[in-house]
Design a binder for these strands. Structure first.
Lengths: 217, 217, 217, 217
DNA sequence: AATGAATGAGGGTTCATTCAT
DNA sequence: TATGAATGAACCCTCATTCAT
């Protein structure tokens, strides 16, 4: 009512930021409630806009969800891509660095954890999401690990073990910490330096060429 | 399905069996679609009854969900309870037996996996579920593992390691296999004897008293 | 479960009383909640039977309602029929007796009040009910009153007044007490001897041939 | 209905008028069918909108009902408030004016009658409604009548009578006409000038200081 | 670009009615 | 006669989507 010049500025401000703000809000809501239980009204309220505005940028709730997951995955992809460098030096040192990085970006980053939750929860409604995630995120990460393990074996640092076929075994404590924290909340979180150190310690022992075992299998 | 003699099967009275049949159907639907997206019509159809009948046994959709999770958890609880025996013999042998059992009942049993999915997905709507699950299922399992690790350390079979504080590290490959299969489907399943063997191998190496480290077997 | 010979007697007992018991229970529930909001489950529970049994005696909820109203009206009809005797003696004495009787049977009898409520509430769903009630109960009562008023005028006891055309005016305080109690509950009831006495007093003054007014208006 | 230029009328925005239109439609439906039997679909259809729109303005069916009763009561309250002026002149003249007004607004106004029906029918579901109605509408009206009666007694115009304790007796013919018309329909309505005149006539006689009775009881 | 009133299909829940026992 | 499990239509309410402004 009357002359609403006051909020004219607010509307003008940022047009290209809108989609990002919406995705941000959508992420929070989808992560909290899952796809079906999330209301676009709540997303809009969190983004400080109205429901109709969402439809200016995303044609449907499903599309918004897909865009949200993709958006939130992007950083991980970039980060993990950085790990595909040619390995050099001690394989164990590489693993140390690698897992220190991974813990920071998958366990202690709430976003990454919530993405995991969303993927697990909505697999049957969005089967492509998990496929794509495996192809673009997890698969490469596993391959990277495998390469490091092989590198360690080749240079006589590691023994031959199932870790070559199942690098997942090395990655497992990360998933454990993720799911644990997802399910039981930050108050019961496992992680912290001690957990990571324990992981690395057990892994080193598990992978290492035993004393006096020579270089063979 | 089954032997259904003509239309005599309709409007049967099976007060005893109904709840179980409904829970069975509800489990499938909740596991597939999550709480919010599951329609009671679909649950009823799967159970071969009509929607109204569900309300003869469960007062609401939420109660049905809770009852479903509890029902599906019962086997795990019973199974895990069986593991609390006093340890004797080789600690590593105990762990082998233990994990063989756990793989069978947590990784290869679809139900157990789906329960995990449901818990993760619905934590924010049913916070008590995860709490109860931790208190009654996971917590005891972790304690049991810890006891075995201590037992191994006491008898000089294992070295002192972070596994005592974080038995989760030993359990992690199980969770990994669970979540992997949940997300990527049976076709990409990790498990099988090789994965378990690899897990046990790495674990043994990781825990074992190193050669020449004194105190060892 | 087990040998249920114990309640065999309970079922045998009274077969002809069942309909009456059901009507009794139905009356309470219909009076409390109205037709639409009354559940047959509640009627059955109040009657100490199960829902299905109602259908052995009444073909539908509507029929049960109609039977209930008819049943509860029967006493009034009988009572009011008794009033159609040929008037004799003082007209005012007849009115006194009449209204004393009416107060007892319409104001202080909860049943009669509740019937009024039910009729008013359900007129549009059961139009015949009100018609029949007017034809069989209220109409005759009004006619009876009119006869007494005429009788009083004829014997010079009453003046000519609108009470001849509208005996309702004399009856009105009864309706007032009824509706008042229906709406505001027994705690705020108007009735009691004082109210009746006041009614009769005002009526007598209103109807009476004024002192020194001779026989005309 | 009304001027509806093409299909431009659909999806109109009338935030200001909508609530009133909905209350209007709700009143008709609730009055006809009672709370439980009224369908929001019918309310919406009558208001020319769809069911969902109702929920933009009223959070539930119960709230809509309460708002409806309150809205329809507002005029009565205003009108009756106007009557609380200091009495002057003939008490009987005041009563004449008063009841002429009341007949117009309580007996001949269908809305007021239907409100009475709704209150009587839904007392047990909405106990507060009747309480509030007594406190805000009926109670003050009774008090007002009592004041006039006392005024008449004080100025020697009226004799002392039960009308002082029970002004309801004076008001009763109004309720009679209301309930009569509610139950038997407009075709059998009692009212009209003759009924009112009769009421006033009997009341005057009933209240008046009798000829030759002096000022005493 | 943004709003927000309006829509309408859909799902949870209730309950009168049926029917095999 | 009585039961009570089962049905299925109906209704309240929600919410993704649309559209006039």
């Amino acid at each position: 009512m009357g002359h609403d010049m006051g909020n004219a500025g607010r509307r003008q401000r940022r047009k290209e930021e809108r989609p990002g703000e919406i995705l941000e809000a959508a992420f929070e809501e989808f992560a909290r409630s899952g796809f079906a239980a999330t209301k676009l009204d709540d997303v809009a309220a969190r983004a400080g806009i109205t429901k109709g505005t969402i439809y200016l940028y995303f044609p449907s709730k499903e599309d918004l969800f897909l865009a949200t997951v993709r958006e939130m995955n992007r950083p991980s992809q970039e980060n993990l891509a950085a790990l595909t460098a040619v390995p050099q030096g001690s394989a164990m040192a590489i693993l140390r660095t690698h897992f220190a990085f991974v813990y920071e970006h998958m366990v202690e980053d709430r976003r990454a954890r919530e993405i995991l939750r969303m993927l697990m929860a909505e697999v049957s409604r969005f089967p492509d999401l998990a496929d794509r995630w495996r192809a673009e995120v997890i698969g490469p990460a596993v391959e990277n690990l495998r390469r490091v393990v092989r590198y360690g074996i080749e240079r006589g640092e590691f023994r031959a073990s199932a870790a070559e076929e199942f690098p997942h075994l090395l990655f497992a404590p990360v998933m454990m910490a993720c799911t644990w924290r997802l399910m039981f909340g930050d108050d019961h979180a496992l992680d912290g330096a001690a957990y990571l150190a324990g992981h690395l310690d057990l892994m080193e022992r598990g992978l290492a060429q035993g004393v006096g075992e020579g270089g063979g299998v």
